[in-house]
Amino acid sequence: MSGFISIALVALVFIIIYQIGKASEYAGVLRGEEKVKVQTNRTIAWLLLAFFILGLYGLWECNEMFKGRVLNISASEQGIEYDRMFNLTLLVTGVVFFATQAALFWFAFKYQSTEKRTSFFYPHNNKLEIIWTTIPAIAMAILVAIGLRAWFNMTSEAPKDAQVVEIVGKQFNWLVRYPGRDGVLGKRDFRKISDADNILGLDWTDKDNMDDVIVQNGELHCVLGKPIKLIIGSRDVIHDVGLAHFRMKMDAVPGIVTTLWFTPVVSTEKMKQITGNPNFVYEISCDQMCGKGHYSMRGTIIVHETQAQYDAWMLMQQSYYSSVHKPAAPEEQKKEVKTDTVKVVTMK
């Protein structure tokens, strides 16, 4: 019923607006088209000017409103460089934005047609063209130079002492594998995968696999100040490891291995204070469309303050091998260990 009423209302508004449009057309004919044209032109020029000024005001309001919520402090070393570069680009584009939009709207107002005005025949000026080809070209060259320096930094080899963790996407959650005490991730093969007892297809003939730990709720633990290198893979379709707070992102593509590394510089606890949000948690979002549960493919990152804290957490973990090769009871228990995540929606 309410649907019907709203449709009727909308139709009514349409009819009214249409009639106004029609009426103004007839009125125009009656009052003399030329005169109406001149008047309309002036009104529109004012409206455009008002649009521009309101637009600037709106922009300012919008900035005020979102100030704290976008690009809040970067949690990685790489991100700090990112923010610097972002601000520089923002400055360059901001200047161009205001200059060109202002010119556009100001000319619209200033050179609106009047009876007296004639236009100035000005077909070209090669000097101007050259100037405004070279200046953008130079600006672009600078942005490219800065960008590529940052890019090569980010994509460089991870430091030797980096913690190595594998993260594998599947529909629709993240599996995180830690190398265990030996510090080496064992071989795996997609043909050995079994949802019951070998979710990543670890090759049990490889000794390195025996102590590997797989965290199935998508929790990625790392240590403040210690570089962490992610080995990224996917079991089925393309996913993407999105680390908004660390300003990092990399696709997880079946059949190939991708990597990414960063150095966390703000611990989870510290970030809770900074944001004033006791529920704060670093989130891993899947950033590549992967099916119906894409929006719920959530992981978390826990940045420990010290290596000792991390080690303590690690001690509580059971190797994947022993967890699947043991009676079910202790495993059941383990699952109930309270973790640092808020509501996790996992779709099957």
Partner: peptide
Amino acid sequence: WITTMWRGNLRF
């Protein structure tokens, strides 16, 4: 485009 509008006789 912007220079095209400069010193024109703009009809909206």
